[in-house]
Design a protein around this nucleic acid. Structure first.
Length: 565
RNA sequence: CGGGGUGUAGCGCAGGAGGUAGCGCGCAUGGUUUGGGACCAUGAGGUCGGCGGUUCAAAUCCGCCCACCCCGACCA
């Protein structure tokens, strides 16, 4: 490709609203253009990268036994209502009506459509297992698009769905995908960390995310260096520590003037926060719930939401709490009626806690569960933090940030049951098909690749996904010998099938070198009167400082070798 | 949805005691240049985010709205 003809210019100054490195560089390099918040056009260079990523993904999906198909973006809302996931996605779902007022939505993902398709095509265990995938545009009305390609409202995703007859099969499919994903990231030059994850609106039981570790990442990861435990902070657990058990003492009221928060109560009574019970009120699907947890621990709302099985969850306002007859600042789980009590399992890790008395400025000492109150649900709803102990091995937990570049889920049968995707086994008995789903965001993968590979001059593409392999850069183009040598070399390299970006512009050396660096093309080939004196061209890798002179007739071979390695 | 910020030429910004808009980069033409974003000259390019109000007069003052960015909520 001749740079003089290439659509898309490099910018000297970055648009001010870009803050993330990948966003800035993509704009500066003229690879993307913003159309609206979270909506972008790809220019030719950017699109070439997306295509290369797509090729790698296809190759690995096919090798793992996947079959590619394509499903529509436009979907009947009714299909989503059948599984109830229209509610799970809530406002994240883009909806619209057709001319007959039939409700449609733009697919945020394709489980419903593919399950319906599989129901039609699969009747017998003989048709299974099945791995089907597509690379398709998805639409999600994100509350806050951000970071350029990192969180978009319209994006491209590879989604594969597995269909199996039993758990074993699901596990095999899952492991195949896990391996294929590792291969994809390796081939894209991206080190990733596999972490346990929450499955969110997709649903299902077990899921893992692939994280590219980077400071600006959206997700917090809690991990253990010792035993390799790693989980998204939404899901992470930590050992809460057993407090020394004491003899159960009887309840005792104590005046706590002016003390409403855990901090104030523990200061006032001179006890550690871990000896108090915190009360937090939420509105879950419109209903007030009482959440209690040890005073030194915070509630993890994702876990709470999962425990409650609710779609809407928010903190209750003080007015809502008071209206329910509860004394804010001294709320007590004892004697509560008509309100669901959810307890974190940490409240059984000690004894004789201090909790509210449901009287103004009064607390109760020696509160014990289940002696004094019963929780409707007792489970882990605690937020884990770095510095706490690993739930597996007891070492200290660490924390870092990452970009989620892939997410795989064991879905189970909830979708196939609701949509009637059944198969008959060898005894002629019907069962729902067991499903899994596996997603990779291509745009985000591209952005993550930049976050991982850049310097102050620009992008440094890994060879496998670089838009072009070679940047051919003649200097002093008015010099007929340079012109001829560059044109010859360009024609020769193109004829040999190499991917060359030929900077045939009449620009100064500084401009050309800076653009070459900004665009991040892995190999730069410079031809100038100086190199031609030695009948050579200069070859320099983007990732290295040193250049070398190579005789013109050896250049093609040398480049092929560099690209191969 | 809450908090903060920004909207003036393609990009980055200045202006703002109210009087009809400027700089740098980029772009066009001509010339001189060329191993790390050259220089000179000439030129094109603007509903000052939108609507309404105040005023003889609004980019500037007032009100409402919109868009975009950042933090949070939420979300894959």
């Amino acid at each position: 490709m001749r740079l003089s003809k290439l659509f898309g210019k490099t910018q000297r100054e970055v648009p001010a609203d870009a803050e993330t490195v990948s966003h800035q560089l993509l704009l500066k390099a003229g690879m993307i253009h913003q159309v609206a918040a979270g909506i972008y056009s790809y220019l030719p260079l950017g699109l070439r990268v997306i295509k290369k990523i797509a090729d790698i993904i296809r190759d690995e999906m096919d090798k793992a036994g996947g079959q590619e198909l394509m499903m529509p973006v436009l979907q009947p809302l009714e299909l989503w209502q059948q599984t109830g996931r229209d509610l799970a996605f809530g406002k994240g779902l883009f909806t619209l009506s057709d001319r007959r007022e039939r409700k449609l939505c733009l697919g945020p993902t394709h489980e419903e459509v593919i399950t319906e398709l599989v129901r039609y095509n699969v009747q017998s265990y003989r048709d299974l297992p099945l791995l089907l995938y597509q690379i398709q545009t998805k639409f999600r009305d994100e509350p806050r698009p951000r970071g350029g390609l990192i969180r978009m409202r319209e994006f491209t995703m590879k989604d594969l769905y597995s269909f199996d007859t039993d758990e074993d099969g699901l596990n095999q499919s899952y492991n195949k995908m896990l391996q294929a994903y590792q291969n994809i990231y390796t081939r894209c030059g991206l080190p990733t960390l596999l972490v346990e994850a929450d499955s969110g609106a997709i649903g299902g039981k077990e899921s893992h995310e692939f994280m590219v570790i980077t400071k600006g990442g959206e997700d917090e990861i809690i991990y253990c260096d010792n035993c390799r435990y790693a989980a998204n902070a939404e899901k992470a657990e930590s050992a809460k520590g057993k407090l020394e058990p004491e003899e159960l003492l009887s309840l005792e009221e104590v005046a706590t003037p002016g003390a409403g928060t855990i901090e104030q109560v523990s200061d006032f009574l001179k006890i550690p926060k871990s000896h108090t019970l915190k009360a937090v009120f939420y509105i879950a699907n419109g209903k007030l719930v009482f959440v209690t947890i040890r005073g030194d621990i915070e509630v993890n709302e994702v876990k709470l939401k999962n425990a409650l099985g609710c779609i809407d969850l928010r903190l209750a306002t003080e007015a809502e709490v008071i209206k329910a007859g509860i004394v804010a600042g001294a709320a007590s789980p004892i004697g509560i009626k008509g309100i669901k009590i959810i307890a974190d399992d940490s409240i059984t890790s000690g004894t004789n806690f201090v909790a509210g008395a449901n009287k103004p400025e009064t607390h109760l000492k020696n509160v014990n569960c289940p002696r004094d109150f019963k929780a409707d649900l007792m489970t882990d709803i605690a937020q884990a933090h770095a510095g706490e102990k690993c739930p597996r091995c007891g070492s200290e937990l660490l924390s870092t940030r990452g970009i989620e570049v892939g997410h795989i889920f064991k879905l189970g049968t909830f979708l196939s049951e609701k949509l009637g995707a059944l198969f008959v086994d060898d005894n002629g008995v019907s069962y729902p098909i067991i499903m899994g789903c596996y997603g990779i965001g291509l745009d985000r993968l591209l952005a993550a690749a930049i976050e991982q590979n850049y310097d102050e001059k620009g992008i440094i593409w890994p060879m496998s996904i670089a838009p072009y392999h070679i940047y051919l850069c003649p200097l002093h183009q008015e010099n007929p010998e340079v012109e001829a040598a560059a044109e010859n070399l360009y024609a020769d390299l193109e004829a040999q099938g190499l991917e060359v970006l030929f900077d045939d512009r009449k620009e100064s050396p500084g401009v050309k070198f800076n653009d070459a660096d900004l665009l991040g093309i892995p190999i730069r080939v410079t031809i100038s009167p100086r190199t031609l004196e030695k009948s050579s061209a200069e070859i320099k890798k983007r990732s290295e400082k040193e250049a070398q002179l190579v005789p013109l007739e050896e250049v093609a071979e040398k480049l092929k070798k560099l690209i191969r390695d």
